[in-house]
């Protein structure tokens, strides 16, 4: 039942993108997303799309995996398009029944759809080419400056990686408890909302108790192995920038400069 859900959608293969330092990928993704909101003409989107396409090709991840992420936001995408299409005031283009599509509406709808799609695909590239582990490592080190502002960066990263380890275990446990309660005649599937919520009690109580017990055990095990926070810890796999990472940063910079410069020109066609 629940066993099939896998967390993180890492796609195992060999590529330059896979080998990049996670900090590069995190920063790159963030900058790429921000850049999408700067464009004023279609040329900008063209540049962004070509850049994205190039990265996808380099990553060796089949394109259909990239689009998979789209399915989750399809509804949101359609909603945005529909709202923008019909609810933007302006010069009427087509009028059907009480609904009017305006020129401005069409324009914003298309822009929003393109932005959203590239945003999703762009972040998929990151999650598909970086193990969750690597990602937390990258965040821990990349966000280290925030420590100056008393943000517990190490603790947050540690929590994330523990969560990643225990989510599959708790999923399996949920499955087991569910089956056991079904064997005792529990019914999780019929009845109205209130009845269904009530039916969850026999599942949630044991699950929480188990999670607390595990947390307690784990805390003890970590202390027994000399864990005492991030200070004075070394890393088995320290993150070190290599030349490919510097080149990648350069590429991102070139893209940003080119995209934002060309993408903000007043082009007559875009009107």
């Amino acid at each position: 039942m629940l066993r099939d859900i896998t967390l993180g959608q890492y796609y195992q293969t060999e590529s330059v993108i896979h080998r990049l330092d996670p900090r590069v990928k995190l920063a790159g993704t963030l900058l790429f997303i921000i850049s999408l909101f700067f464009f004023r003409n279609f040329l900008g989107y063209m540049i962004a799309a070509s850049f994205l396409f190039l990265v996808i090709r380099l990553s060796h991840v089949p394109f259909r995996f990239m689009v998979k992420g789209m399915r989750a936001v399809l509804f949101l995408l359609l909603l945005t398009v529909v709202f923008n299409l019909f609810l933007t005031p302006g010069e009427a283009l087509v009028s059907v029944w009480k609904l009017t599509i305006t020129k401005e509406g069409l324009r914003t709808a298309v822009t929003m759809a393109v932005r959203l799609a590239m945003l999703v695909v762009g972040s998929s590239v990151m999650t598909l080419t970086t193990t969750p582990n690597n990602l937390t490592d990258g965040m821990e080190k990349g966000l280290r400056p925030l420590k100056l502002f008393r943000v517990p960066v190490h603790e947050v990263a540690m929590m994330m990686s523990i969560a990643l380890r225990f989510i599959p275990i708790l999923m399996e446990e949920t499955d087991k408890i569910m089956k056991a309660q079904i064997a005792r005649g529990a019914d999780f599937e019929s009845g109205n909302l209130i009845r269904r919520a009530k039916a969850l009690v026999p599942l949630m109580v044991p699950l929480f108790i188990s999670a607390f017990r595990r947390a307690n055990d784990l805390a003890m095990a970590m202390e027994a192995r000399c864990y005492r926070g991030g200070d004075g810890r070394t890393k088995m796999k320290p993150l070190i920038y290599r030349s490919r990472d510097r080149i990648a940063y350069l590429c991102i910079l070139v893209y940003l400069v080119a995209g934002i410069w060309l993408g903000r020109l007043e082009l007559p066609v875009a009107g």
Binding site: P132, R165, I169, R214, D217, A221, M222
Partner: peptide, 9 residues
């Protein structure tokens, strides 16, 4: 409990 003392993924 083997599950509750392994931290790494």
């Amino acid at each position: 409990n083997p599950d509750n003392q392994i931290i790494g993924q």
